[in-house]
Design a protein around this nucleic acid. Structure first.
Lengths: 194, 194
DNA sequence: AAAAAAAGAATGAACATTCATTTTTTATTA
DNA sequence: TAATAAAAAATGAATGTTCATTCTTTTTTT
């Protein structure tokens, strides 16, 4: 396999450069020549690792999305009760969005624009299954409101993207206190009130 | 004023074409030539109305943002109680995001990417003041949680963008029932529990 | 007939991608 | 182990295209 012999470091550098440039300048202002320079590589080399620019962006998206979900569910355990499980996952996701800010920014940009192919977006959604399963369990137990998963996501996970972007822009800082308040807001929006 | 004599229709057509193209193809794939064609105008004519491409996009953003907030606060009245006021504004915003879907999509794309200038983004935020005032009142009265406005926005308004985008992509449909559920989720995430 | 607005064609720069070489790595032989 | 040949990887410099913007001319309005 020729591909496996090619330096994985170069590939990673290219992915990272893509994320950096797209985050800071936008996709429209992230030419292959700049990506190459930032990765310390010749423009021609990119084409040894990726078919073309679209492929580079698609693959970057899929890779980052996989990292994101892997991180989110790393210490998830089905034996714990719904509320606690949700808290654990939510806080892992919050962690990712704040610590892996560059990655999270890139995902947010892809999720809100037509820069990646629809098939890649679909591909990325699949990895969220454990969260959907947890919600199904919560609904069955009467702990979580019996509403669409899209609503649950919109009110618990998606706000984190907004907060992350605004923190990155320097509008405000998400410290421990704010994070706890955010978690409470998330949980109160989907829990069943006794 | 030479500017006022130029056809306002052409200007509007250009703004609309910009929104359409950026929504469907992304900023990187919205060349001036296509925008011109879609607006039934020569490429050179664009430069009679806008300085350059960046200016076109900036102005489009500001214009759409102004429309958005104008719509949101159209029937807002300071005499009504906080909870009711919030409901009215929230539902107007929901309405806008669902009925003026193209406009809302464009805003979402601008708000999550570096395609518009930072100064325009700031400019756009100013128009939200009435909502921030309402929240201040709600906090003082002990009706709304005493948390950062960014959190309040993240948990009440921002989810609508996510829902709108996914509705546009055909993932699901936001009917009357879902909309009411969404409103309840929004309100429960920020109200003070008695 | 003068001024303003609009047009299509032209210009030059920037870009994605490919090409022709060079460098590096791997495998082979002495 | 050292020398070398073959293969793979990487490169910088082309290539041809696309694009934003401008220029010159034409059309429309005053």
């Amino acid at each position: 396999m020729a591909k496996l012999q090619k330096s994985i470091d170069k590939r990673n550098a290219l992915i990272k450069a893509t994320i950096d440039l797209v985050n800071n300048d936008g996709f429209h202002a992230a030419p292959m020549s700049k990506i190459a320079k930032m990765a310390n590589v010749s423009p021609a080399t990119i084409y040894l690792y990726f078919e073309n620019k679209q492929d580079l962006v698609n693959k970057t998206y899929i890779e980052v999305k996989a990292e994101y979900t892997k991180y989110a569910f790393a210490n998830y355990n089905e034996d714990v009760c719904v509320q606690k499980s949700f808290e654990i996952i939510w806080k892992r996701i919050a962690d990712f969005k704040l610590k892996e800010c560059e990655n999270a920014m890139f995902l947010a940009q892809c999720d809100n624009t037509p820069i990646i192919d629809e098939s890649c977006r679909q591909e990325g959604i699949k990895h969220l299954q454990p969260l959907l399963d947890l919600w199904a369990r919560g609904k069955k137990e009467g702990v979580i409101k019996p509403i669409s998963d899209y609503l649950l996501y919109a009110y618990t996970i998606n706000p984190l993207s907004f907060l992350m972007i605004n923190q990155k822009r320097g509008s405000f800082i998400l410290d421990e206190t704010l994070l706890e308040e955010a978690y409470q807001a998330a949980w109160s929006s989907i829990k069943v009130c006794k």
